[in-house]
């Protein structure tokens, strides 16, 4: 019986993770400028991948596999934070205009 419950929990967590990826994609398409889109793009890695990783960790055969999943999530987080910062900084340096700010950016 516990096996069935575990599978249900995995299904729920993975679906929830997929939902956040979907929402992130919607944000990527719908948000007004590069800065807002970066939010949508990078945050899917945090919560979406986190939920999927948690769901899969429940199915993992042993603790080595769980540690592996945790490590993959942490590395994805580190990459997301770094990439987000680099893209934002280079956009700012190139004077890419931001929504919600009244004045045009001087280039």
């Amino acid at each position: 019986m516990t096996g069935g419950l575990l599978e249900l929990a995995t299904g729920g967590l993975v679906l929830a993770g997929a939902f956040f990826f979907l929402a992130g994609t919607a944000g990527l398409l719908r948000f007004p400028d590069v800065y807002c889109r970066l939010h949508a793009l990078t945050k899917a890695d945090n919560l979406g991948l986190g939920l999927i990783a948690l769901g899969l960790a429940l199915q993992a055969p042993d603790w080595a596999a769980r540690l592996q999943i945790l490590l993959i999530w942490l590395l994805a987080l580190a990459a997301a934070a770094t990439v987000c910062h680099i893209l934002a900084r280079s956009s700012l340096e190139q004077g890419v205009p931001a929504a919600g700010v009244d004045t045009e950016v001087p280039s």
């Binding site: 956040f20 944000g27 948000f31 007004p32 949508a40 945050k43 945090n46 919560l47 979406g48 700010v101």
Partner: peptide, 27 residues
């Protein structure tokens, strides 16, 4: 960190999927 991620993630997902796309971005 987990608590903030979940609460913030739901908030951002809501804004991304909401028909009116309510945002007030800024630096």
């Amino acid at each position: 960190f987990v608590n903030q991620s979940v609460r913030g993630g739901i908030d951002v997902a809501f804004r991304a999927l909401h028909p009116a796309r309510p945002l007030d971005p800024g630096f």
